[in-house]
């Protein structure tokens, strides 16, 4: 097991280098000058050149990229052009907020999604099933910025139940967590339903019934563990996505998380910060996928990690 994890992490290195390289190239081809962005338009050309020299932006691109990789390996992602703070510091300052938001919305989504999915599958084609699946489809299809604004309007401005933005109390987390969670819950519900429907048609479910087991024991004992195998993949991937910050939700609700930091870094052409966030995102996905793969081995004895 430990050997497997180490091997997987070593295999992830080329992925991380690739991700960094693509980001680096993209940053250098998109229009916009980070130094101009940083110093303002009315700076004198000599100072501009000096700052460029200091930041190493005059070096050939491969030297710049090599330097980034070399420093990243030592855990140093450089300093933000705009604030001068270490990038790692900035990521670590915002990450806990994003984690809190991600975990609370994931909790809402997993509990809601799996419960609805199971009921829908067991009562296939019932009124509940149709209603739940239409709602889920709507939940997946509705753009998140729209859902967020509607939620702010209804629960914040009209009903005045919840604050519409900011991040100062647990109460502030409810709207963003639910808005983020709905879409996630909707996809979990649909995946759970289809996985369950497939499993409850299997021969071994008939065997379980033929043993004299009660329907509850058949569903939760025999079907659930099998049906969870595909659902875990979806949950794992989505949680990785949530953990790296939701750009729209954090921006709309003014939550100082990684998502909002990404937008800020991009709009300021803060190259080191963008590079750092993208690399961090890639690391989170690599670890997330690894955890999903390891959890397979616990759910499915046919999977042996090697």
């Amino acid at each position: 097991m430990a050997g497997y994890i180490v091997r997987r992490l070593i295999m992830a290195l080329p992925v991380l280098v690739g991700v960094s390289l693509i980001t680096f190239i993209l940053l250098n081809v998109v229009p916009g000058d980070p130094v101009l962005e940083m110093m303002g338009k009315h700076v004198d050309p000599l100072t501009l050149e000096k700052v460029r020299e200091q930041l190493g932006l005059n070096d050939p691109l491969y030297v710049q990229f090599g330097r980034f990789l070399f420093n990243a390996l030592r855990g140093d992602l450089g300093k933000s052009f705009k604030t001068g703070q270490p990038v790692t510091q900035m990521i670590m300052d915002t990450f806990p907020t994003t984690v809190k938001l991600a975990l609370s919305s994931a909790f809402v989504a997993i509990v809601l999604g799996i419960t609805v999915g199971i009921i829908s599958a067991v009562k296939q084609y019932s009124f509940f099933d149709h209603a739940a699946m239409i709602t889920a489809l709507a939940g997946i299809s509705a753009p998140i910025f729209w859902v967020a604004v509607v939620a702010q309007l209804v629960f914040g401005l009209q009903l005045k139940w919840l604050p519409i933005s900011g991040y100062s109390s647990p109460k502030h987390m409810i709207l963003p967590a639910v808005v983020l969670g709905i879409r996630f819950a909707a996809s979990i519900a649909r995946y759970t339903r289809s996985a369950f429907l497939e499993v409850i048609r299997q021969d071994f479910i008939r065997t379980a019934r033929a043993k004299g087991l009660a329907e509850r024991a058949v569903i939760f004992g025999h079907a659930l563990k099998n049906a969870m195998i595909p659902v875990v993949t979806i949950i794992g991937m989505q949680i990785s996505g949530l953990l790296t910050g939701s750009l729209l939700t954090e921006t709309i609700f003014a939550i100082p998380g990684l998502g909002r930091l990404s937008i800020w870094a991009l709009s300021n052409r803060d190259f080191p910060l963008v590079q750092g966030i993208v690399l961090f995102t890639a690391v989170v996905f690599v670890i997330g996928n690894l955890i999903v793969d390891i959890s397979y081995a616990f759910l499915d004895p046919r999977v042996r990690l090697q």
């Binding site: 071994f204 065997t207 033929a210 004299g212 025999h222 099998n226 759910l299 046919r302």
Partner: peptide, 19 residues
């Protein structure tokens, strides 16, 4: 079921729960 009357099915490959 499973007590007084038991059943053995055709498909041994799929009739047991894999997990």
């Amino acid at each position: 079921r499973g007590n007084l009357i038991s059943m053995v099915f055709q498909e041994p490959m799929t009739s047991l729960n894999p997990v």
